[in-house]
Design a protein around this nucleic acid. Structure first.
Lengths: 218, 218
DNA sequence: TATTTCTACGTACAGTGTACGTAGTCAAGG
DNA sequence: CCTTGACTACGTACACTGTACGTAGAAATA
């Protein structure tokens, strides 16, 4: 008999929801969420597949728990700054978390919000409320800012899908004719030159300023 | 022998890329992209699985073709209107197409743009250029508008994932405590009341106005 | 007519999520 | 002490996925 007892080198701390979710996030961060399988995940924890199902109903629940665990990484807003500055900070922190977990943006809206994401949304709404904007403007501002974070990180990561984003951009720009699509080529070149890296915050401020202006025009 | 020859009731026009892509879009529109399988698709066309691979390299290529076919449905901009109005129209047409094909937003950024999407992006960039905005502002405006369309439709469809979006919203609002998250509950109630249905165009105008204002402040 | 190219098809394989049954471990109750 | 029950890890099994590969006939070319 070759195998004998299993090597006790494996940690084998008792399986728990949090540990499973954390391991799944680590795997997804590293190899992409597409190659995250239940078997894969179980093996990385030193267990067999079906043991996971004692702690997680199914893969969808696991993914939704991952999203919420990511949302929990978003900084809580500080209470000692102006509301609009806090909105700004919360948005930037959200962007950072989404960029840290490349699988998150695509899953962000697939499931009902868990506790952490609910808290983040409530915080953002509360801060908008505190800015003194009219309820309607606050409502739209919430959506505008939320869409911006999500759209921005999705676009960012869409290009980074492969290994080398620059190679992807070059592949694209080479695949189209500069005569047919001069603006497109110029735009991609602008990105490759890297002189628009701060466009996230620029557009964010554009949105926030626009809200203030609409309010003052009431 | 029961089976005999295959029923000639099936149309069996000769398999072609366009027909495959069109059928795939129809299936995805109806049953969701998750339940679109190659076998499924082949059967719906009256063929067997592997026949598809004579026209499509793999499923990823098929999905990317679907995205581009959707992009082809976006209205071409009219040349006889003011550039900013054309930007607005192009954006709204894009939103309509994305809403018509609920699988599209999630795939929109997964692949390099095909010819149709490249054309749409080039059009949008050209129109922004024609508005007379500074190149930098045009660059940011392009991204702001693009993010807005994508984020908005994703959010819209995220809630509509199941059968009944209202039921989903109610399930969510029931799952959280109004004491803990009053703003969140109020926000969802606002949505259920339906008095913010035009928020897409409102936020779009907010962005466009913000761009104009920044330009005039130069 | 002979030959090459193209397309549909069948079979096969590795990998997926997960339903179900079983065995062991550990705590509470007799 | 022994028994019972709950809980968890595990093995097996199933339906289903994408697709590699080989073959056979039809269409186009020589």
């Amino acid at each position: 008999m070759i195998d004998g007892e299993m090597s006790p080198a494996m940690p084998r701390e008792p399986l728990q929801r949090d540990r499973i979710v954390a391991a799944a996030m680590e795997l997804a961060d590293g190899d992409g969420v597409d190659s995250l399988s239940m078997r894969n995940l179980a093996r990385s924890l030193g267990y067999e597949v079906m043991s996971l199902y004692n702690h997680v109903a199914n893969k969808d629940e696991l993914l939704s728990l991952m999203v919420d665990a990511a949302a929990a990484e978003i900084d809580e807003p500080r209470e000692d700054v102006a509301p609009l500055a806090a909105v700004r900070a919360l948005t930037i922190s959200t962007r950072d978390v989404l960029a840290r977990h490349p699988w998150a943006p695509a899953l962000w809206l697939r499931y009902l919000p868990g506790p952490a994401r609910t808290r983040q949304m409530d915080d953002l709404l509360r801060l908008f409320d505190a800015t003194g904007l009219s309820p309607e403007l606050a409502h739209h501002g919430f959506h505008a800012v939320t869409n911006h974070v999500l759209g921005y990180t999705l676009a960012q990561l869409g290009l980074n899908m492969g290994d080398d984003p620059e190679a992807r951009a070059n592949e694209f720009v080479d695949s189209i004719s500069e005569d047919d699509h001069p603006h497109m080529v110029a735009h991609v070149r602008q990105h490759l030159a890297g002189d628009t890296s701060s466009s996230f915050e620029l557009v964010l401020d554009l949105i926030l300023d626009g809200l203030l202006r609409l309010e003052s025009d009431h």
